[in-house]
Write a protein that binds this DNA or RNA. Structure first.
Lengths: 340, 340
DNA sequence: CTGTTAGCGCCTTCAC
DNA sequence: GTGAAGGCGCTAACAG
């Protein structure tokens, strides 16, 4: 049923070579020959078999995006940004979920690299430690999203990276809470895992800002098992049932945590922002519609996706320079949850 | 660099045929031969080139999932369900966004069908009308998600379909509001587009239930431009600024609309559920964390994904029976927004 | 039970 | 400027 180059060639009375030239828009094809081939192409409704083409050329135009979980608000929006940006660039995105688990991240990376389906991988790592990443030898180009996870590590991670200045962003958010007169600011979120680099950086910014304000002893931190709304709610429950005096502000490591926190504060009868201010991170769309609306750090995901895809494409095209590191912009969006 | 069957064959001193047999776990391979090949396989770290295999076999094990928009809560969760279920079944999912636009749905369907990348398509149609769908001649198997969009149409749509009983589900939700003593229930959401079949069915259930309660004249309907939280908020703004008396309950066609509505009601100082009850549809995770927590119709997305993938796999395997129609379960989850 | 061989559909080096 | 032919890596007839 499928129309092949041969069919078209026969129809136009030329060789497959010539048809291929026309299809791929090569130079040096006589105008009338081209016209004849074009006609045959249209008449037979020829569509190149991308599988065959890819087999021949050694690339597919497909990239894999590995994220922890599409139901996490931020990653849903991130996936959206990538699908969008890839469509523009004529690239196809294949999405897989790692659950943020180290072994699944490694396994999927391995599959992607060896399966020959994809030209490259975009990884939003959550389970792999900096050491793991540094030791990685992927068979195909890899671009890291969010955090390169270097920093305190000895060996720098040898991959391109597109992310945000999490330290600066966190300082901005915490600084805002300080400006509102808050002095007992508790950080919410962040597991104990060494792989949790993004959290570490956001917490670092948090501590830096408090220290700069002379409030070093005040740093408190409510760890969570993950980054879900349920975890945010649970953290608040614990904080407000503890012996110590509850905080007057929460610095949540992402918006889902913050949403869960808001929910639980409401249930406990704690007024936001009067009794406690809350800020989140990621500025997902949902945060405009919480009650009260959530103050958050907005990240330019479209820019992230564009840069990451461009970097990856360059590597696929054979670029071999040193690992690049792109910083994407962020800005604090103040809403009701922290108005002062 | 890549290790091929030939390399393995040479190493093991057999032909490629035999290696292929071992790799694909075929019968009739002498135990010692198999062992030798296995050893060579491991030593050389052989990985089959899936591209070549697919070219040969005419299938890829990849399916395309076409959804309107990953940032819509429901579709994020749906995509998650499919990625999960597909992983279990050894299938890879390629996700694309249609924006719910008719021409993009058609274009992406066309691309998917002719690109030879994918074995089949899962379509959550929003822009294509029942007539469009009936006229479709996709080059590869297609399974419709959510609504088959038949019903009032003359010609039935000739594709497998996995969905919910939207009419019954809507009746259940509206019936609950009636049980709470609400009598002025306004439906929120639903565009005027003929393609918007899911909405039509949910609205149908809404009207049926009111009529059954002898409240036919009370049906009111606030249309929206789309299904976003912003649209839900806008609808509430209009309803409460209109001349008529505002409703005492809102039946929202999805949870994002309901979330936006809750937000706006709070801003207007309308108490939920005291002054007005609110129910949503889809029961996305977020709805457990709104203030107040949202009553909603929960849909079994995991079952939906499983059934859809199974149906599609059967068609890919050549099944040619009449179009099947699978109904997935739903249940009403009552939370604070409609407690009575 | 295993070896040989012919393509799957395409691109591309080599001739002309 | 165009034709002929080889091969990307694999599977499946067809022998043997």
């Amino acid at each position: 049923v499928a129309v092949t180059l041969r069919d078209v060639a026969a129809r136009a009375g030329v060789s497959t070579r010539t048809v291929s030239n026309v299809v791929n828009d090569f130079r040096h094809v006589a105008p009338d020959t081209r016209a004849r081939v074009q006609a045959a192409l249209v008449e037979l409704d020829y569509r190149p078999n991308l599988l065959a083409r890819s087999l021949r050329q050694g690339r597919t135009g497909i990239v894999t995006l590995l994220v922890p979980d599409l139901t996490a608000s931020y990653f849903g929006e991130l996936a959206h940004a990538f699908v969008e940006a890839a469509g523009q660039a004529g690239i196809t995105v294949l999405i897989d979920e790692t659950g943020g688990q180290r072994d699944r991240e490694r396994a999927l990376l391995d599959v992607a690299g060896r399966s020959s389906w994809v030209d490259g991988v975009l990884l939003s790592a959550l389970g792999l430690t900096p050491t793991d990443l540094a030791a990685l030898r992927p068979a195909i180009p890899l671009v890291l999203l969010g955090e390169r996870a270097s920093g305190s590590t000895s060996r720098p991670v040898p991959f391109d990276h597109v992310g945000f200045d999490n330290v600066a962003a966190a300082r901005k958010a915490v600084g805002h809470l300080l400006d509102c007169g808050r002095r007992h600011i508790t950080a919410v979120g962040g597991t104990t895992r060494r792989s949790d680099v993004t959290s570490r950086l956001r917490l670092k910014g948090y501590r830096q800002e408090l220290r700069a304000a002379g409030l070093a002893p005040q740093t408190r931190h409510a760890r969570t098992a993950d980054y879900t709304r349920a975890a945010g709610a649970a953290a608040v429950r614990e904080l407000w049932s503890a012996a110590e005096e509850p905080p007057d502000a929460l610095f949540c490591l992402n918006d889902d945590l913050a949403t869960g926190a808001l929910r639980e504060l409401h249930r406990l009868g704690v007024a936001v922002p009067q009794d406690v201010s809350v800020v989140g991170f990621d500025d997902v769309e949902q945060s405009q519609f919480t009650t009260p609306a959530l103050t958050s750090v907005a990240l330019d995901n479209a820019a992230l996706a564009g840069s990451a895809l461009r970097l990856l494409a360059e590597r696929v095209d054979g670029a071999s320079g040193p690992a690049k590191d792109v910083r994407i912009g962020h800005r604090l969006v103040v809403r009701e949850s922290s108005s002062c």
